[in-house]
Design a binder for these strands. Sequence first.
DNA 1: TTTGCTGCAAATCGTTTGCAACACC
DNA 2: GGTGTTGCAAACGATTTGCAGCAAA
Lengths: 134, 134
Amino acid sequence: MENNQPIVGIRSTKQRQAILDVFSDEQVHLSADEVYLLVKPTQPNISLGTIYRNLDLLTRIGALTQFILADGTRKYEKTSSHHHHLVCINCGETKNIPGCPLDREIKGYSKENEFHIVRHSFEIYGYCSSCQTK
Amino acid sequence: MENNQPIVGIRSTKQRQAILDVFSDEQVHLSADEVYLLVKPTQPNISLGTIYRNLDLLTRIGALTQFILADGTRKYEKTSSHHHHLVCINCGETKNIPGCPLDREIKGYSKENEFHIVRHSFEIYGYCSSCQTK
DNA sequence: TTTGCTGCAAATCGTTTGCAACACC
DNA sequence: GGTGTTGCAAACGATTTGCAGCAAA
């Protein structure tokens, strides 16, 4: 959305609350469309535009965090302590990994290259246990 | 493109060669549009469609590797030994990092979760030396 | 009453695809 | 000559945006 407007007054609407409710669990990782489908039952008239605008705003105020999978899919999750993801190539199930791989060695390498690290992404792709048996 | 056709006979055309030439250096990381701009001078009539079709084909035969940045940008590079990227948030300059962070600890965690790892992504974002001074 | 928020529809961006002409082998 | 490849334009999916009406505060 590339909206760099300063955030002034934020109102609490039922649409926004319904979207936030969907992300109550930290293990919830959803695309805009998935959020739309989940919110639709309680907010039948909600539009995809509203979903996108809210996901963007909630991300900008820090309530949600956005990340992009290797296939380009954009997903959102509730903001929580630093972690990474384990993503099933088959069913898309996404789990949080507590550890972080940004180790001393790599930090050292970046320093050598005079690179100032701001953030990083790390996702593991493979098959979850139930998809392996199929 | 989601093209799962078996690859039969591949021909050498000047368009395809021009695209490959752009990726002669391993430190070249480009989007489809950037390739288009670079190839245009020698192939004035080339179309973006041809660029996309060739990037896809060259990726499927393993000559190129595709990766997606945290902002959703799709990039291509010449296939080479396993590595990761250092990406400047400001100018977009992308450098290869030789090390790999997929360490014992994380592999162990995946095993605990009965997750079969196939591949992973890891990119570091920040500011390169020249963008820091500006 | 003010102004942020919504639904709707149109617009945009990156990418894919159908097709007829073309050019490799 | 056969078929892989190309340029072109239309189609596509995900996301963004303009606008007028609505609703929180």
